[in-house]
Design a protein around this nucleic acid. Structure first.
Length: 860
RNA sequence: GCUCGAGUGGUGAAAUUGGCAAACACGCCAGACUUAGGAUCUGGUGCCCUAGGGCUUGAGGGUUCGAGUCCCUCCUCGAGCACCA
C-alpha cells in the first residue's frame, strides 16, 4: 500500500501518508507504564489571522524530529499541539467587524490546524487543547481561585502602566523601553485599582530553581536579572530635630561613613512632613515638575540630575554626622524604600549629583593607587572610625551588626521583581471568577459553615472602597466554573479603564442565594426573592491577561478531557513534565517566568506532585530572516509563506530545508535557491529506490564495504546529532551517505532499509513511501532505529599520518602498525621527498609525533 | 554605559581534547544528453602569481612543535539590561 505515482510527487505522497497516520492513529499517545515516556512540547501558537509564519515550522519540525527519533529509540512519546487563543488581535478584529472573537478564533484555528497538518508532524491530535474553551479555562479560573484563597491574588490601587493605544493596563514585563510589548504603543503611569498576583513571594524559589534545569544560559541570565536579587542592609537615619526616621536600602553599608546627603523620591511619603518652611515652595514646585515628566524623561541617563534641598537633616547612625536631605527624581519611588543614602565618592549617580549641586564628597574606601573618584569597587576603609583599615567585604557585615545592636539597621535583601499585574480591560480573556459585594453581605454569604463561597475563601478578605462603601471580593466556587463570557455588542474598552464586560449589565449585576449558592442575573429579580437568602453583587469585569492560559497548558495535554481536576493524577505521574520544550526566546521573562510561578504554586499546594519545575530542558530556535537579511514583515514584502513552499516543493523539502539552513538556535536568512538543493536530494533518494519505470529497484543482498562503512558512520552521527539538536550536520551526513551509495553502485538491501529509518525523522513522508515500496507493511515510525555496528570493524588497515614541517602540511604517509616506534616513523617521514625538500640543509630543533595522527618537524 | 553571544570562500555554513581549514549545500564555470534548459548527469571552483610555490578563519600581539579553537588589546555586528541604590 503506497501512494500512486511513478515519479517523485510530494503532493500525492504526503497527502497519502498524512491520511494514513490519521486513520491509523499512528501518533496517538497512551500511558504505558511498561515503557519509558518522552514528552516533547512546542510553545503553542496564537492562531493569528495571517496564518502560519515560516518561523513556526522551524521549532515544530525540530521538535518533531526529536519526537520521531525518540519513538524510534523505543520511547513512548507524547507530542501534542494546541492553541493559545485568547488575545488582542481577535478582539481588535471583533471591534472593527462586530464579529464575535469566538467565531474568528475558531476560523483561524481551523486554518492553523490544516497548515500544521500539512507539515506532517507526528502529533497526537486527540489531545488538542484551546485556552478559550470553557472546559479548559474553568481550570485557569480554578488556579486563580487557589491563588486567591492563599492570599496570592489581591487588589491594589497603585501607579501602573496604562497603554492608551491598547486601552488596557500592562504588566511590567509587557513594557519595553516605555512602549507596549504588543503593538509598540507608548505607555504611561496611571493610578488604577487592579488585580495583582504575589509573584514576589516566589522570588527566591524562582531564582533557585534555575540552577538545576537545562536551559539556555542567556535565558537563565535574563530571569536572574529580572528577579534582580541583591543583598545589603536597611539603614535608618534619624531626622534632626524631628520625630521619625528615613529608611534607606543600600548594597554598600561599608560606605556608610561616606554619606554626605540623603535623597528622597518626589513621591516619598515623609517629604511633606519634614520639609522646612522656607523650602516648601521650592519642594512643591519640584514635585509638581517631576510629576509632569514622563517615566522616559525621568530615567533618561543622559540628563543632568536635578533636585532641591528640603532644609531638613538626617543623622548618620554610625558617625553621627548631620547630612542634608534632598528631594531628587533620580531616586525612584519603586526602588527599595524610595530613599537613598548618597555616597558621592563611591557611586556614579551620587557623584554626578553632588558635583552638580556642590555637595561635599567624602572618600571612605581606599581604591589603591591612581583610583579616581567615584570609585565603585571594593578596598580597605578609610575615614571610617573604628572600621578604618577593614576590607569592604568584612566591613559590610561588621557595620550592619553594629547598626543592629542599636536598632538603626538590619541585613536585608531587595528584588527588582514586582508583583504581577493580572487584570486587563479586555473582552477576549478569561473572566475573573469574583463577585464584588458589600462587606455586610460578604459576611452573610460566608457565615454558614457549609457555604460554597468558603471553598476559596482567603484568610483576610480582599476588599476595596467603592463610592465610600467597603466592598469585598467573593470568590465563586468550583460548581460555578467555568464562568463564561457574556455576549456584548461593544467590544471596545473605555479610556477610563472600564472593561468592555461592564456593558453586559445583566451579566455583571447578580443576585446570589447565600444558602444554595445559586447566582442569577439581578434583572430577573422578582418580589419573592425579597428574602434574607439573597444578596446582590457585581461581577469583576476585568479579564485575565493572555499569559494565564499558557501558564499550565503543558499539564492539560496529559489528560485534556479530565473533568475532575486540571490534570488526571495517574496521567501526571506517568508523563511528569515535558522532557523537551522548544519555542522563541522572546518569552524569556514573560511566559517562561509566569509558568514557572504557577507551576511552583501548584506544586506547593499539592495540585501536582511530580517536578517543582515545569520545563526540564528548554531550547530556543533562532529567527528566520527574509532573503534580504532583514526581519520578515508585510511592509518589507520579504515574507515567505510556508503553504506556498509546501505546495511547490512538498513538506519534506520544507522540513529538510529549514533544518539544513544552519544551527537551530541561530538567526539565519531564508534562501529560496537553497531549497532547490534539498529538493534534488529528495529526488536523488527517490531514484535510488525507484527506477525510471516507476518500479522498485532490485537491491543486492550484500553491499560494498564503502557503503557499509558510511552507513554505520551515518547511523551513529545522525543519532548523536539529533540528541545535540544539530540537524544541519545530520542532514549533510545523510547526503554524504546517499552520495557514497550512489557512487559505489551497490545497493544492499540492508542499506536501503536502514537509510530510510534514519531519514524518517527528517523527511517522514518519502521515508514511509519508499519503506512501503520496499514491501514493508505498517508505518516506518514503528520500524525502530537501526543498530550501529562497531566502527572498528571498518577501520582501515593502514593508518594515515599527516607530516608537517613547521606546522605546515607537507605530506602524508601510511603505516600498517599503529604501534610503530617513534624512531622508525620519524625516519619514514624524513625519507619522504616532499618532506626532505623542506628540511634539507636545516637543523631539526624538535620532532613531535602524535600516535596515529600527525608528525611535526620544527626546523631552523 | 554594563553583561553576554558572534565575526571563517561569491552565499548558507562545517571543523572530538589545540592536530589535514572550508565538509555538506547554494551559486558560478566547463562539458555530456538535448529543438530547448530554470530538467538530469560528469568535472572544476578560498585568494594571489606561470607548472611550483606563497597567502588565508574581523585587526594586532602572545602562548605552543602546532591556534578558527587558548590568553591579552582593539574593531564590527547581534541580543539582553539600563539611574535597582
Amino acid at each position: 500500500m503506497h501512494a500512486d505515482c511513478g515519479e517523485y510527487d510530494p503532493g500525492k505522497i504526503e497527502q497519502f501518508w498524512q491520511k494514513f497516520w490519521e486513520e491509523n492513529q499512528t501518533f496517538c499517545a497512551k500511558e504505558d507504564s511498561s515503557r519509558e515516556k518522552y514528552y516533547v512540547l512546542d510553545m503553542f501558537p496564537y492562531p493569528s489571522a495571517s496564518g502560519l509564519h515560516i518561523g513556526h515550522p522551524e521549532g515544530y519540525v525540530a521538535s518533531d524530529i526529536v519526537a520521531r527519533y525518540k519513538r524510534a529509540r523505543g520511547y513512548n512519546v507524547l507530542h501534542p499541539m494546541g492553541w493559545d487563543a485568547f488575545g488582542l488581535p481577535a478582539e481588535q478584529h471583533a471591534i472593527s467587524t462586530g464579529v464575535h472573537p469566538e467565531l474568528n478564533t475558531a476560523k483561524n484555528i481551523e486554518i492553523f490546524r490544516q497548515q500544521i497538518k500539512r507539515i506532517g508532524l507526528a502529533i497526537d491530535w486527540d489531545r488538542e487543547i484551546n485556552t478559550t474553551d470553557p472546559q479548559y479555562f474553568r481550570w485557569t479560573q480554578w488556579i486563580f481561585l487557589q491563588l486567591f484563597k492563599r492570599g496570592l491574588a489581591y487588589v491594589d490601587e497603585r501607579p501602573i502602566w496604562w497603554c492608551e493605544g491598547l486601552k488596557s493596563v500592562l504588566a511590567n514585563e509587557e513594557v519595553i523601553n516605555g512602549r507596549s510589548e504588543r503593538g509598540n504603543f507608548p505607555v504611561h503611569r496611571k493610578n488604577l485599582r487592579q488585580w495583582i498576583l504575589r509573584i514576589t513571594k516566589y522570588a527566591d524559589k524562582l531564582l533557585d530553581g534555575l540552577s538545576h534545569i537545562d536551559w539556555p544560559d542567556s535565558t537563565k541570565r535574563q530571569q536572574i536579572a529580572w528577579i534582580g536579587k541583591s543583598t545589603g542592609a536597611n539603614v535608618r537615619f534619624k531626622i534632626y530635630g524631628q520625630d521619625g526616621e528615613i529608611e534607606v536600602y543600600t548594597t554598600r553599608p561599608d560606605t556608610l561613613f561616606g554619606v554626605t546627603y540623603l535623597a528622597l523620591a518626589p513621591e516619598h511619603s515623609l517629604l511633606e512632613k519634614i520639609v522646612a518652611a522656607e523650602h516648601i515652595e521650592q519642594v512643591k514646585k519640584y514635585i509638581e515638575a517631576s510629576r509632569s515628566k514622563s517615566d522616559l524623561e525621568r530615567t533618561d541617563l543622559a540628563k543632568t540630575k536635578t533636585g532641591v534641598p528640603t532644609g531638613a537633616y538626617g543623622i548618620n547612625p554610625v558617625s553621627g554626622a548631620r547630612v542634608e536631605i534632598w528631594v531628587a527624581d533620580y531616586v525612584l519611588a519603586s526602588c527599595g524604600s524610595g530613599a537613598i543614602m548618597a555616597v558621592p565618592a563611591h557611586d556614579e549617580r551620587d557623584y554626578a549629583f553632588a558635583k552638580c549641586h556642590n555637595i561635599s564628597i567624602l572618600q571612605v574606601i581606599d581604591g589603591g593607587n591612581g583610583a579616581e573618584l567615584p570609585y565603585t569597587g571594593s578596598g580597605n576603609l578609610i575615614n571610617s572610625g573604628e572600621f578604618s583599615g577593614m576590607p569592604s567585604e568584612h566591613a559590610k557585615v561588621k557595620i550592619v551588626e553594629m547598626l543592629q545592636m542599636s536598632s538603626r539597621g538590619n541585613f536585608a535583601q531587595n528584588y527588582k521583581l514586582r508583583d504581577w499585574l493580572f487584570s486587563r480591560q479586555r473582552y477576549w480573556g478569561e473572566p475573573i471568577p469574583i463577585i464584588w459585594v458589600e462587606q455586610s453581605e460578604y459576611e452573610r454569604a460566608i457565615s454558614d459553615a457549609n457555604s460554597c463561597f468558603r471553598e476559596f475563601l482567603p484568610d483576610e478578605p480582599v476588599a476595596c472602597d467603592s463610592g465610600g462603601k467597603k466592598i469585598c471580593a467573593l470568590p465563586l466556587c468550583s460548581k460555578h466554573l467555568p464562568l463564561k463570557l457574556p455576549a456584548v455588542t461593544n467590544y471596545l474598552p473605555s479610556s477610563d479603564g472600564e472593561s468592555p464586560l461592564s456593558n453586559a449589565k445583566d451579566w455583571v449585576n447578580v443576585r446570589i442565594n447565600v444558602q444554595t449558592g445559586e447566582i442569577f442575573s439581578a434583572d430577573s429579580f422578582s418580589s419573592d426573592a425579597n428574602d434574607r437568602a439573597w444578596i446582590f453583587g457585581r461581577r469583576e469585569t476585568n479579564t485575565m491577561p493572555q499569559w494565564a492560559g499558557s501558564c499550565w497548558y503543558y499539564l492539560r495535554y496529559m489528560s485534556p478531557n479530565c473533568e475532575t481536576s486540571l490534570v488526571d493524577s495517574s496521567a501526571l505521574r506517568y508523563w511528569k513534565s515535558p522532557d523537551f520544550y522548544i519555542g522563541g526566546a522572546e518569552h524569556a521573562v514573560l511566559h517562561l517566568l509566569y509558568a514557572r510561578f504557577w507551576h511552583r504554586f501548584l506544586f506547593d499546594i499539592g495540585a501536582i506532585d511530580t517536578d517543582s519545575e515545569p520545563f526540564q530542558k528548554l531550547f530556543h530556535q533562532g529567527i528566520i530572516l527574509g532573503e534580504d537579511g532583514m526581519k520578515m514583515s508585510k511592509s518589507r514584502g520579504n515574507g515567505v509563506n510556508p503553504d506556498e513552499i509546501v505546495s511547490r516543493y512538498g513538506a519534506d523539502a520544507l522540513r529538510l530545508y529549514e533544518m539544513f539552513l544552519g544551527p537551530l538556535d541561530m538567526v539565519k536568512p531564508w534562501n529560496s535557491r537553497g531549497i532547490e538543493g534539498v529538493c534534488r536530494f529528495l529526488k536523488r533518494i527517490w531514484h535510488f529506490y525507484v527506477g525510471d519505470d516507476g518500479n522498485g529497484r532490485k537491491f543486492q543482498e550484500t553491499m560494498p564495504d564503502e557503503c557499509r562503512r558510511v552507513l554505520n558512520e551515518t547511523i551513529g552521527k545522525v543519532g548523536s546529532d539529533i540528541e545535540d539538536l544539530k540537524f544541519n550536520t545530520a542532514i549533510s551526513q545523510l547526503m554524504i551517505c546517499l552520495n557514497t551509495a550512489i557512487d559505489s553502485k551497490g545497493f544492499g538491501r540492508a542499506f536501503g532499509e536502514n537509510f530510510l529509518r534514519i531519514l524518517a525523522p527528517f523527511a517522514p513522508h518519502i521515508a514511509e513511501e519508499l519503506w512501503a515500496r520496499l514491501g514493508n507493511s505498517g508505518s516506518i515510525a514503528d520500524a525502530g532505529w537501526p543498530q550501529c555496528d562497531a566502527l572498528e570493524k571498518f577501520t582501515p588497515e593502514k593508518h594515515k599520518i599527516i607530516i608537517q614541517v613547521n606546522g605546515k602540511v607537507r605530506a602524508e604517509c601510511f603505516i600498517d602498525d599503529i604501534n610503530m616506534p617513534d624512531d622508525e616513523i620519524f625516519a619514514l617521514a624524513m625519507s619522504n621527498a616532499d618532506v626532505s625538500k623542506h628540511i634539507a640543509g636545516k637543523n631539526i630543533t624538535k620532532k613531535v609525533y602524535v600516535r596515529g595522527k600527525i608528525i611535526n618537524f620544527a626546523v631552523k
